[in-house]
Design a protein around this nucleic acid. Structure first.
Lengths: 113, 113
DNA sequence: TTGACATATTCTTATATCGGAATATAATTT
DNA sequence: AAATTATATTCCGATATAAGAATATGTCAA
């Protein structure tokens, strides 16, 4: 059986539409209709994706008249950022001498495969 | 209907067990049995998760005797890294003056919500 | 060849997911 | 109080996912 319903950032962001929504919200608050229109999505699906993003804490909402304005909460992406940052050095990004040396030393002692 | 089976990095990495497997492989090549033992997982599930990681290009394999040694392929994490890096500034990381200024200017002109 | 280990696959079961269609709710306007 | 607009929810069908159990495959050793 699969794990319980995913309300974590990693799962929320695994869906391409939801990444596009977040990308859009970088420029500022937007209404559901605006998001749907801009991304060429249906309104109900947009609401549903927004609900997932909300549950994961990746967005916030604010009601203004009959509109609901969603805003990005970038903080919630930190777990992903921090996790993947640990792999950065594997393709040469921000690879200073000390780190490189430690990595090499570590690689030498690989008996317990 | 859901999208076709996920063989991309984002989806592959949305499963916690698979992230732990990748984390483990940072230290070097490991056999299936070693991975399963270290992480307290069953062998079949481990093989299955490894197959997903392989399909996403996140790991490589090499047969040595009756063992199969899996190794990390960090390159495949770049799409995730690059995507999430764009949000870094939202929590103050690497936030230089020019970027800050441009962001603020952009925020001012938000009429089309 | 038989046996032993190591790993992969298949089958089942329970659940989650996503899109589409229809409908419900909420806030505003007339 | 309607009618209108914006958004959310529900129901459906097709499919994906993950764990567990059982079994298959592959590789080496005796």
């Amino acid at each position: 059986m699969p794990r319980p319903a995913a309300s974590d950032a990693f799962s929320a962001v695994s869906e391409p539409h939801r990444r596009r929504i977040l990308d859009l919200l970088v420029s500022g608050e937007r209404s559901v209709g605006n998001i749907a229109g801009t991304l060429g999505m249906e309104q109900p699906q947009t609401s549903k994706h927004l609900r997932v993003l909300l549950a994961a804490g990746l967005v916030g909402v604010r009601g203004v008249g009959k509109q609901r304005l969603y805003r990005l909460n970038g903080q919630a992406l930190r777990p992903i950022h921090d996790w993947v940052k640990g792999y950065e050095q594997l393709w040469g990004e921000r690879f200073d001498r000390l780190e490189q040396y430690l990595k090499q030393e570590q690689d030498k002692g690989e008996g317990n495969i």
